[in-house]
Design a protein around this nucleic acid. Structure first.
Lengths: 170, 170
DNA sequence: ACCTGATAGTTGAAGGTACAACCATTCTCT
DNA sequence: AGAGAATGGTTGTACCTTCAACTATCAGGT
């Protein structure tokens, strides 16, 4: 069909630039914490979950990541001692990633750092109305991206794919 | 300081999800064209430039990429026959990436595909007001990301870092 | 002319991600 | 119960990106 309009081109170019710059910028701000932005997201998800644990597939859904990727990142976090793998008693196919004590500390330590980074790189640029617009527009785009219905995406409150927080172990 | 507010958390989570999903989704839609989204951006930049060529550093600035990355991608495009390296007569440190005939064809072929992908994944989700908001909000965030002043970022029209389109060769 | 510092580009090494193939377990339906 | 499909995870392979050297050229000041 017709090619993109000028305003469309501008918006898309800016979005592309953001896609290119923001992730690496976020990672760089977190280097002193010893974790990547993605790893931080994982720690956060675990810390906020019941019993500090979540199944790998649940983590993958929450973070919009591949299961393959998740498995490898968890292995890496395991090597750092921040996370531990535990078999899931309710389903022996499944594996829980459990936050260790060191993991909680790492999370606590990087939490402020992460918040500061997000503020510095994103929120400080926006007023209240902008924030609303960002929220609305990103959600609109996500509906086009998400494999239909299931909006694993951290919607307004809870995550539909929220994994019935695994049976306890301890 | 205080942690993020609820609306802030929601917006950030959505933005993060977008950052995670959109690039890979765009790439997937372009696979049949045989180029990645990033490679397409390069071809586009070259095709729109005088004499179909641009210095590597100029390409890097335009695409917000590292020079190292750019060098490797150009090598890859060279192997595919879409681009050719030519020394820059005006500055013998510099190298021009020149679009080959095959490169122009590849660009022409992937152009519609790319436009379709952008429409399907981004624009179709937005009305005119949304597009405005997206444009404004992304620009605001980019100003926080960009190493100050130089907004290499494809601003409203021309790119400040636009590289005085290299002396001709032919 | 010369020395110093910046600029342009390349490349080795390390790490991250995707895709696909693979095994194990669970679920569904009969 | 049993067959087949779906789910949960892991891993080999290939590719991509970054960071940090390293080379070569240019620009400014003396």
């Amino acid at each position: 069909m017709t090619s993109l309009s000028q305003p469309e081109r501008v918006a898309v170019a800016r979005l592309q630039a953001l896609l290119e710059l923001l992730p690496t910028a976020l990672d760089r701000q977190l280097t002193s914490a010893g974790v990547t932005a993605f790893e931080y997201t994982l720690l956060e998800a675990l810390a906020e979950s019941e019993y500090r644990r979540l199944r790998l597939s649940a983590l993958a859904a929450r973070t919009n990541a591949t299961l393959a990727r998740l498995s490898r990142v968890v292995t890496s976090l395991e090597r750092k001692g921040l996370v531990e793998r535990m078999p899931c008693p309710a389903d022996s196919r499944a594996t829980n990633a459990v936050l260790t004590a060191a993991g909680e500390q790492a999370y606590a330590h990087s939490r402020d750092l992460h918040a500061d980074a997000v503020r510095a790189l994103v929120l400080d640029a926006l007023d209240a109305a902008d924030l609303d617009d960002l929220s609305r527009v990103t959600l609109a785009m996500l509906t086009k991206l998400d494999p239909e219905g299931r909006l694993t995406v951290t919607g307004d409150r809870a995550c539909a794919a929220d994994p019935v927080p695994m049976v306890a172990l301890a």
